[in-house]
Computed example of a mutant assay.
Amino acid sequence: MLALAYLILAFLEVFLVLASPAQETFASTNKPYDVQAHRGGRGNTVENTVQSFAWGLVDGATTLELDNGITSDGEVVVWHDNQILAEKCIDTRPAFPDDPTYPYVGKLIANLTLAQIKTLDCGSKRRTDFPQQLLYPGARIPTLQEVFDFVECVDPSHRILWNIESKINPEHPNRTASVGDFVQKQHAIFSASPYHRSITYQSFDWRTLIAMKELDPLIPTSALIDEETAFTPDNSTSPWLGGLHLDSFPGPSLGQKMAQAARAINADILSPCGTCFIPSFVTSEVEPDLTTQAMVREAHILGLRVKPFTMNGLARIDELFQFGVDGIITDYPGIVRRWAKQQGFMVAPRHPKQRVFSCLEKHLQVIRG
């Protein structure tokens, strides 16, 4: 009976999609289409720096997407990786004479103080996979508060939206701060900011989403998922999904089960990898997409929005748009904003370069002391 019910529902969903194209659905809203600048727009600028967020504002991103780590002295910093990678940062000097931890490149964020991290130059190395990145030699890893302060200078009316990720790894709990530390420390900064109600909280580690909802039921949460966090080779429960196993959900497809799992933790958004495939040890199909139209339909039925990451190719973005996705996380926000405008969507305003870079210079003067 359950299978028959799903078959009937699928036919109804196809009819509704054909009767109401995605273009009409989104064009009827009064909000800008959600073009998210991934790490500020790492295709254009060295990532997760104040300079990258400056260009995200100039490019007219709707949302600034960024990552948080926590230092050994409890400071919330904006950085993607659990450790300082040599391909992104350069040591300049020890934080104090004869520091036994120096050099800092290669060390974990959780094992470094803010003072040690602030000595790193993370603006002088261009990623080989992003050959158009602008370099900003001497750029430092910022704190979350510093990024908020800079953006508020540019955006005093607080129009910009935020998508902020906790970079925690349940498979290696000793490499990062704990779930409680992330949620408590991030939320303390969120709640003190005028952007408090403009923040979405996202994570691959769904434990943090559950804990954040318990602390602040009003904050929107986004469940990140990809092929590495959804599945395990032995079909055991993935440590990333907050104790859930996808096979415990009744949907006929894996995409539908992912949507149901995200709803089960009260997430508001499902954020799947838009270019990933389901591993061969899970399915015999040849390179089946992780993000499917069935997933998007199921998510919408359950009241979830869908915002895939990290989408840079317009051909795949066109396909996901036909599925009805509610936003795009991209390394090239300027290009995707132009695409969204071509589709007839409202788009967020571009912030004037003069104001952005005036605020950037003021910020850098404060940081330099």
Score class of each variant (00 low, 15 high):
Phe281Pro: 02
Val17Glu: 13
Gln116Tyr: 03
Val336Leu: 14
Ser238Met: 06
Leu134Val: 02
Glu361Tyr: 09
Cys359Gln: 09
Ala348Met: 11
Val58Ile: 13
Ala259Asn: 03
Leu134Pro: 00
Glu285Ser: 10
Ile141Lys: 10
His187Met: 15
Gly41Glu: 06
Val17Phe: 07
Val347Cys: 06
Ala10Lys: 11
Leu144Lys: 05
Arg197Ser: 15
His363Phe: 15
Ser157Tyr: 09
Phe321Val: 00
Ser284Ala: 15
Phe231Lys: 07
Asn44Trp: 02
Pro97Cys: 12
Ala177His: 05
Gly56Glu: 00
Gly60Gln: 04
Leu108Pro: 02
Trp79Tyr: 14
Ser284Glu: 11
Glu146Trp: 12
Val17Ile: 14
Glu65Met: 11
Val356Trp: 00
Glu75Arg: 10
Pro272Gly: 06
Lys125Trp: 01
Asn266Gln: 11
Gln36Met: 08
Gln260Glu: 15
Met1Leu: 09
Leu320Asn: 06
Gly123Asp: 03
Gln184Lys: 14
Thr208Phe: 08
Ser248Pro: 00
Leu108Asn: 08
Gly243Leu: 05
Leu302Arg: 12
Ile367Ser: 06
Val50Asn: 06
Pro252Gly: 02
Pro233Arg: 12
Leu64Val: 13
Ser28Tyr: 01
Cys153Ser: 12
Leu302Met: 10
Ser52His: 04
Asp268Ser: 15
Leu360Ser: 07
Leu114Arg: 10
Ile199Trp: 05
Arg207Leu: 10
Thr92Ile: 02
Val50Phe: 04
Gly334Ala: 14
Leu320Asp: 11
Ser157Trp: 02
Ala22Gln: 09
Thr113Arg: 00
Val78His: 02
Thr128Leu: 08
Pro233Trp: 05
Glu298Thr: 14
Ala267Phe: 03
Asp34Pro: 01
Met346Glu: 12
Gln184Val: 07
Ala110His: 14
Glu65Lys: 09
Lys213His: 13
Phe182Arg: 09
Ile168Cys: 02
Arg42Phe: 01
Tyr332Trp: 12
Phe130Asp: 01
Gly303Lys: 11
Asn82Pro: 04
Leu2Met: 13
Leu112Phe: 06
Ser124Trp: 03
Gln83Tyr: 14
Gln256Ile: 11
Ala27Trp: 01
Met1Arg: 09
Thr143Val: 10
Asp99Asn: 13
Trp339Thr: 00
Asp149Gly: 05
Trp79Gly: 04
Glu75Ser: 09
Ala3Cys: 02
Lys307Tyr: 03
Ser191Gln: 15
Cys273Val: 01
Thr310Phe: 07
Asp205Phe: 08
Thr119Cys: 13
Arg338Pro: 00
Phe182Gly: 05
Met295Ser: 11
Asn163Val: 02
Gln36Gly: 07
Asp67Trp: 04
Arg140Met: 05
Leu302Tyr: 05
Ile90Tyr: 01
Val325Gly: 03
Ala340Gln: 04
